[in-house]
Computed example of a mutant assay.
Amino acid sequence: MNAVVNENIATGPLALVREDLRDFGGYRSARSDRLQGEIWLNANESPWPNPSDADGMLRRYPDPQPQALREALAALYDCAPEQLLAGRGSDEGIDLLVRAVCRPGGDAIVVSTPTFGMYAVSARLHGTRVIDVPLRENDREWRCDFAAIGDAALAQGARIVFLCSPGNPTGALLPLDAIAALARRLEDQALVVVDEAYIEFADAPSATQLIATCRNVAVLRTLSKAHALAAARIGVVVADAALIEVLRRCQAPYPLPAACTDEALRALATEAASRTRSRIGIVRAERDALEEKLAELPGVRRVYASRANFVLARFDDAQSAFDRLLDAGIVVRDMRAAPGLGDALRISVGTPQQNATVLSVLESRA
């Protein structure tokens, strides 16, 4: 590598990448090169389709990063296509970031519990320490101690800070100015990853707008929640283009099944997108109503203000509430194993009728 590239590595976001991966070429699949031809004999594919394959295209490997999908997602998330990597849900994005930035056995990440468990799972599978700076509970809100996070990251040499906004399972939205200040404090020290899986339900600006001035910010987005495509497994990392290129080289050769790409493109078309926006509005209204009505029920100790598509509540007897809901055929998330949530359940916002049924079951204490 030449001196100019080395200088850029020392001063840009690539300084946060593991040194042994900065010039890592990864695996170049048969679809990595943009080649044109009539007879495709470069990927050891079957020359005949499977008898069950009506259009005969399943025998071909898919494009690793379909241009049409990248452009559609970039338009959705207000970034350039080269700032975006699509993959198998946000989970793959988390795993790629940990592998690309953290040295096994030598680095650490920072999380703030209670939070999404995959940050710690990915780190531990990679041999990376997990530093927990717990959220602070204040009445009906959860607050992030940004000063303590910065202190811990600097003192213990953390390479990634994972922030979830809105939080899962808390539903709390983090202020962008505080995220930006943390990123500036940790510049050249750590990557600040903001998981925005639920941001559409918050009606709030995205942390993607910080990337232009805070190059150590990366944002996770997904089509699983607001866009109702959980089974398609389409997630995105939005970050500085240089970091995205490193993540691409660390990614598996064919991460996006063609059928999933096609479904995502249909879902992002104008008419479907309009219906999605309408349904997001319904979810927000139902969430606010569910919060208010839950708080009035006997046996409900506390309901937290949520900016996501779920509500977190504490119960006098969480086991009884969980059992009564399950007996009625309603499955909610038992959060009692999470740090500090020994009496809590997380209830996803359903249809108006489903939400009314939840309230009816909880109100009729047997």
Rank of each mutant, 00 (worst) to 15 (best):
N2R: 10
N2Y: 03
V4H: 13
V5R: 14
P13G: 05
L21K: 09
D23K: 04
G26T: 06
S29Y: 02
A30F: 07
A30M: 07
S32T: 11
S32Y: 07
L41K: 13
E45Q: 13
S46M: 11
W48L: 15
W48G: 01
P51V: 14
S52H: 11
A54H: 11
D55E: 11
G56H: 11
M57S: 12
A74L: 07
D78N: 10
P81V: 07
P81D: 08
Q83D: 13
G93D: 06
G93I: 06
I94S: 01
R99P: 01
V101G: 00
C102V: 09
V110E: 03
P114S: 11
T115V: 10
G117C: 04
M118R: 14
S122T: 10
H126N: 14
R129L: 13
I131H: 09
N138H: 12
E141Y: 10
D145H: 06
F146S: 01
A147W: 03
A153E: 03
G157E: 05
F162C: 06
L163Q: 04
S165D: 08
N168W: 12
G171S: 06
A172H: 08
L174C: 08
L176D: 10
L182M: 12
L186P: 05
A190K: 02
V192P: 03
D195P: 05
T208I: 12
T208S: 14
A212D: 12
V217T: 06
V219P: 01
L220N: 02
L220T: 03
T222H: 04
L223S: 00
A226P: 02
H227W: 09
A228M: 09
G235T: 05
V236E: 04
D240V: 07
A242Q: 14
I244L: 09
E245V: 04
V246H: 02
Y254N: 03
Y254S: 01
C260G: 08
T261K: 00
D262I: 11
A264W: 00
L265C: 08
R266S: 08
A267I: 00
A269P: 01
E271P: 00
A272G: 00
R277S: 13
R277A: 15
I282H: 09
V283Y: 00
V283E: 00
A285I: 09
E286K: 02
R287T: 07
D288R: 14
K293N: 10
L294A: 05
E296A: 15
G299F: 06
R302C: 12
V303P: 03
N309D: 15
V311L: 09
A313L: 09
D316Q: 13
Q319G: 13
F322L: 15
R324I: 07
L325I: 10
L325V: 09
A328Q: 07
A328L: 08
I330G: 05
V331N: 12
R333A: 12
P339K: 09
G340V: 10
L341P: 04
D343P: 04
T351N: 08
P352M: 12
P352D: 12
Q354S: 14
A356D: 14
T357Y: 01
T357W: 04
S364A: 15
R365G: 03
